[in-house]
């Protein structure tokens, strides 16, 4: 194979990798990332949605996000899985794909560190799900437990 063939083949492969779902991989969540998210989102209204594979109502909220994203795209949503369990990695991936959430930044709590992660997000939250944080442009956050209805999500995310 000539050098140019190799080069074009390499570029073709990396274009495929680089432009396909860049956010497909969920990333282990930590305190620094939360701070970064907050800093980078200052000045805009956004939503942080926390869910678990063991939470049927969470799926309903993910489905609403999926529907809104199809209609409006580029929603300011960050999605965080709270299972903190390596054993559910495949389930988590399946659900992210099923609800077409790969366009969003996806995070997950690290195995065995679920409560630590929950605590640095919000020490007054006890882990009930789904948990939605409506974050104002000033950075002020409002946590809500339980399924949020579509009209409220639309109002918050679609300006």
């Amino acid at each position: 194979m000539s050098f140019f063939k190799k080069l074009s083949c390499g570029i073709f492969i990396c274009v495929l990798v680089g432009t396909s779902s860049s956010y497909a991989e969920s990333i282990a969540f930590n305190k620094a990332q939360l701070a970064t998210l907050k800093t980078q989102n200052m000045g805009k209204q956004w939503l942080m949605l926390l869910w678990s594979v063991d939470c049927p109502p969470c799926f309903k909220e993910l489905a609403i996000i999926q529907k809104l994203q199809r209609q409006h795209s580029d929603l300011a949503v960050v999605i965080i899985n709270t299972d903190a369990n390596d054993e559910i990695e495949n389930e988590r991936k399946d659900i992210i794909e099923k609800f077409e959430l790969t366009d969003f930044r996806n995070f997950h709590f690290v195995d065995g560190q679920g409560d630590q992660s929950r605590f640095f997000i919000d020490p007054t939250w006890y882990g009930e799900l789904p948990r939605s944080y409506f974050i104002e442009s000033s950075g002020k956050s409002h946590g809500k437990s339980g399924l949020v209805n579509q009209s409220l999500l639309t109002q918050w995310l679609v300006n």
Partner: peptide, 19 residues
């Protein structure tokens, strides 16, 4: 999606605990 942090910065954070 500029409400989201740099992908590379995120990827540098790896899970420390193995199964």
């Amino acid at each position: 999606h500029n409400h989201q942090p740099s992908h590379q910065a995120m990827q540098s954070e790896k899970e420390q605990i193995s199964p």
